[in-house]
């Protein structure tokens, strides 16, 4: 590892709030990444009559398990439950997936928390905890990928504008202004009424309208830094434009860009949730926190819905902001721990 990265990591570790936020976040993220092993309506694996089955990954028909129907086995069906009861079965901690409807639940829905549903059910009989686990994973993955994409585009555009300046900057800046002026919500409504949105479709459309956040700061940093003496020194040395941009100017612009990324990350998660809340986002079969919020609003007598979504979102956004701040400070060379001058 290069010493600069070693120092960044040391700086990050010295920031206790960021470090603990990262630890807690990583635990939650790893847990939710294996959501299928924690909340699922089918066993993780089972040994039946000397044969190994992995229902979590493979769809088995009932006949394979010794039943009569050739269709896929529904492990919540009492008949199937009976079939596998003799074998060795490992069930997940929560026996519901995000879209499992518990037909046995006592009406009316939504059902309050009890021993079976730790955080109750929503108005269609889905387990809320299972939904939160899947929804957390979806939101974080969406937020992270959108931040990476949007930062990449934004930094590239800002860097080109700032470094070359002049006409490039003039034209680029006007294009960005026009693009920023588009009414995002309406465009999204129109786009989503033409195409059935999926995860990637949402990712692409939302990225298209959020990369401008970084362009301004990166452009400003490049405009400033391109006249620095060390950039001049590099040019005097014959270093090419691309190398100067990547090696000399970009690292100096990164602190400014990184200042924005935690907010970009959080706003992308919030935007997705908001669109889902307005029924303009992901379709019904996605485990979305926004849709759970819509249900909470429609069922004010069931506070466990709203409270649990609120707690999940608040925890997630707070942790991400703290981690983002820590990363930003770690990248700033002027904030150092125990550095000394040698005069």
């Amino acid at each position: 590892m290069s010493p600069i990265n070693a120092r960044r990591i040391a700086n990050f570790r010295a920031n206790r709030r960021a470090l603990w936020s990262l630890r807690i976040f990583l635990v939650l993220f790893v847990i939710t990444l294996c959501a299928e092993m924690i909340a699922n309506d089918r066993p993780i694996f089972m040994v039946l009559k000397g044969k190994l089955f992995v229902p979590m990954l493979i769809d088995y028909s009932e006949t394979e398990l010794g039943g009569v129907l050739p269709s896929a086995a529904d492990y919540r069906d009492p008949f199937v439950a009976d079939l596998i009861s003799e074998g060795l079965v490992l069930w997940p901690l929560i026996r519901y997936s995000h879209n499992t409807i518990n037909w046995d639940v006592e009406l009316p829905l939504p059902h309050p928390p009890d021993g079976e549903h730790w955080l109750g059910t929503d108005s269609s009989g889905n387990d809320v905890l299972a939904k939160l686990i899947y929804g957390f994973r979806l939101s974080v993955l969406f937020g992270l990928s959108m931040t990476v994409l949007a930062s990449f585009i934004g930094i590239t555009v800002g860097a080109l504008q700032g470094y070359f300046g002049g006409l490039t900057d003039l034209i680029g800046q006007r294009m960005v202004e026009i693009w920023t002026g588009l009414p995002v919500l309406f465009v999204l409504i129109i786009l989503n009424s033409i195409v059935e949105p999926t995860f990637f479709w949402m990712l692409v459309t939302l990225t298209l309208f959020s990369w401008m956040a970084l362009t301004g700061v990166v452009r400003a940093e490049f405009l400033r830094a391109r006249n620095f003496e060390f950039v001049r020194a590099a040019r005097a040395m014959g270093v090419g434009n691309l190398t100067i941009m990547l090696r000399h100017v970009l690292p100096n612009a990164m602190t400014a860009a990184l200042t924005y990324t935690p907010f970009l990350l959080n706003s992308s998660i919030a935007t997705l949730t908001a669109l889902d809340f307005l029924n303009l986002g992901l379709p019904l079969d996605y485990p979305s926190l926004g849709r759970l919020l819509t249900q909470a609003q429609a069922n004010l007598q069931a506070p466990w819905l709203g409270l649990s979504v609120f707690a999940t979102l608040a925890t997630m956004l707070t942790l991400l902001i703290f981690v983002g701040e820590g990363v930003r400070d770690a990248f700033d060379p002027r904030r150092t721990i125990g550095s000394t001058r040698h005069d």
Partner: peptide, 24 residues
């Protein structure tokens, strides 16, 4: 010109501004 640059170098006035703070 790039090939020539190695033979012609420059040292700048400001010792604080002429070294990239992010590089070793």
């Amino acid at each position: 010109l790039k090939n020539l640059r190695r033979n012609m170098q420059m040292v700048f006035q400001d010792p604080y501004g002429s070294l990239s703070p992010r590089l070793t």
